[in-house]
Amino acid sequence: MADHERPFWEGGARGELVVQRCRECGGLNHPPTMRCRHDGSAELEWTVLSGRGHVEGWTVNQHQWLPGVPAPYVVALVALAEDPSTRLLTNLVGIDPAEIRDGMEVQVTFVRPEPPDDGLDDDVWLPLFAPAAGP
């Protein structure tokens, strides 16, 4: 994995959703980049977010595309609470797909996939989202 992407994937080990933020304009950037997509600044830092967001789009996948990844599962776009113009592609878990609604509030949760047996020591955690507890 690229060095400038590592903090995003490793934040889950601490239960933290870590996203790039511009020191100049405060805008979030995802996937991680080298110049802020809002103002072009190279002054980017990592920030720990609340992990809250809302469902912007979703689909219920019914076809097994990948070995070891059985259907069904929910693929979703989650807009981040701190900057809804920045979204994550993710999975929704812990909810009956029929109960998902446009705009519903969700909260991050992490899973650590079994790494390939290729000798790399990447510690990758996937941020997934589940329905947010009450306000």
Binding site: G57, W58, T59, V60, N61, H63, W65, L66, V69, Y73, V75, A76, L77, L89, N91
Partner: peptide
């Protein structure tokens, strides 16, 4: 597990 078909589904 996201593919082109999932993005079209969205």
């Amino acid at each position: 597990g996201a593919t082109a078909a999932n993005l079209a589904g969205i």
